[in-house]
Design a protein around this nucleic acid. Structure first.
Lengths: 198, 198
DNA sequence: ACAGCAACCGTACGATCGTGCGATTCTGTG
DNA sequence: CACAGAATCGCACGATCGTACGGTTGCTGT
């Protein structure tokens, strides 16, 4: 009983790694089976459709991202430290090529034009992330480190933009200045929302 | 002689539209032939490999983007008007679902992990766009509307981030506030670089 | 108008796709 | 140790993938 779940986990892990390179759509059961050193049918039996496999990979990526980025950030002190923690860990996630948050970005642009369960889940996840960022921003207001008149949604939007362009310049262009630029953008963003006291 | 080039153009146009939905990697010769109402082999003869077809589609997307966004912006007066024109036309391009600049973003995240000619071309195109934005920014300095101490590369980076998150919120989330947020981000960006005189 | 060539089609190929099914091996329990 | 059920495999299926080749059509330049 434990065995099945165990291999399933291993498969999903490999699927995330593979999808991180070729996209969720480019994911192939045959190649996945080869990478996992088992038969196509044996692998396929764990999921009962390709879409289920893709959804499982997406779920795993989400959990990884939450574990590595969101949850640790939420344990940091409210206000600027928490925002900083979120940003830094997010940056780490993209820099190290950890297939977590990265897969979201890739999948998001991949499926934004194809209705279906994948797209719906993607949209939900992104909305959740936006909400989380907004929440982190608002919690900064309660400790008087963030100005009470800032638009938290707008802040979430802007921060996400910084991360998106970081991924692009880092992964596609391999621009060594990607991180420097991202940090600069982030500090500017922070300056615009923080109180004088902070 | 004109006939061949004509159908080739039509094919590429359809390819761009199709790739705009399913991605450059999801592009299929069979489906493309069906959409174009001609045989697979007849279509294939125009390109001699799938990669060539993808590169052709990418080139067409680039031309469209340059025609609709870059070139018109460069005819606007130097300084803030030119920056504004670039932004507005870019926004139009994404809002209307015009498969031009949008395809770049999709393809960029799709191929950022797969070495090859596609990836190289994508990187080149994005680098060119970054350079163009930087140039537009610098030309604003010469007419004293942009502060001479601004980092043009950083500005290009930030503007690109605004566009990326706009695409995401507009296309994936179908957020009606996407444009409002993008405009707000843009104005903040502009305020940070403009001189008091402007 | 006719020769020649570009454009296009039909068909075929090996490979791989996602998905089923029956048989086999493994594993945990009484 | 025997047995039940889970886990995995081998094999097959129809479809579609990218690519090739030889024949047919139709346009074009002289």
């Amino acid at each position: 009983m434990a065995k099945g779940a165990q291999t399933r986990e291993a498969i999903v892990d490999t699927a995330v790694e593979l999808a991180f390179r070729v996209g969720l759509g480019g994911l192939t059961i045959g190649e996945l089976a080869r990478a996992q050193q088992m038969s196509k049918s044996g692998l396929f039996a764990h999921f009962r459709s390709k879409e289920a496999l893709q959804l499982a990979a997406l779920a795993r990526a989400r959990e990884t991202f939450v574990d590595l980025v969101v949850r640790p950030a939420l344990t940091a002190p409210r206000g600027l430290p928490r925002i900083r923690e979120l940003f830094e860990r997010w940056l780490d996630c993209g820099r190290g090529g950890v297939p977590g948050g990265c897969l979201f970005v890739k999948a998001a642009t991949e499926f934004d034009g194809q209705p279906g369960a994948l797209r719906d889940q993607l949209a939900q996840d992104h909305q959740d992330l936006f909400d989380t960022i907004g929440q982190v921003c608002r919690s900064g207001v309660s400790v008087h480190q963030v100005r009470p008149d800032v638009d938290a949604d707008q802040f979430a939007h802007d921060l996400y933009g910084v991360m998106l362009v970081f991924y692009l310049t880092h992964r596609l262009l391999a621009d060594p200045a990607a991180e420097t630029h991202a940090r600069a953008s982030f500090e500017t963003l922070l300056d615009a929302v923080r109180t004088e006291a902070a």
